[in-house]
Amino acid sequence: MKILVCISNVPDTTTKITFTNDNTQFNTSGVQFIVNPYDEIALSRAIELCEGGKGTVTAINVGDSSTDPTIRKALAIGADDAVRINAVPRDAYFTAYQIAEYAKTGDFDMILCGRESIDYNGAQVAAMVGEFLDIPSISIIKKLDYDETTATLEREIEGGKEVVSVTGKFIASCAEGVAEPKIPTMRGIMSARTKSLQVVEAVEIAEVAKVVKFETPAPRGAVKQVPAEEAAKLIDLLHTEAKVI
């Protein structure tokens, strides 16, 4: 079995988000980058499925050389090898196209990624790759079982879940529940240095979307405190002042 896992390089979740160049660029100064937490879940499940010599896991990232430490982290967690498509990812369409083009060169049984990236909050790549490859894509899964030919997946829906079964190649985007994120072991960190990280040039494609500017949310007014012993007043305020109940 061969599994391809898409890894996104994102700012650490504790990052205070600021912008430069007249609010057109994310300010990366002093920012720690990590493997997108959802991608880590996908990677962890892929490693579990391949345990005991049942298969191999390849991590793929679209990025310039600055993302190499994040890819090495994926190798330390347990990916067998990695590939970096050498380009600054413009948008999800571009990224998905690169991943799909690479996937065509290897005979992958499944492709996994995270439900969304925590930077641009796009949840687009999985379904786009699925469409480029003309294979099923199942978005936002909470469970993934695989028995050599057929995958059984649980997909999140509003107020519940849906069980989906797929035979043949597919791509799925993983959410919490699919696997516990694995923490790299010392041995994993040592071996990550020598595992293969192949660099592949990007394929050009017409641009369809670009971010022109970032905005930060308007600050809220001062908090209105209600004394604990008069908690009932809150209900009145929500009804007559905030008009939300």
Binding site: N121, E207, V208, K210, V211, K213, F214, P217
Partner: peptide
Amino acid sequence: KKNAFSGKAFAVTELTS
């Protein structure tokens, strides 16, 4: 305009297609 950075910011995105 869309949500970005998990609600920490908005990204104004131009669709050029």
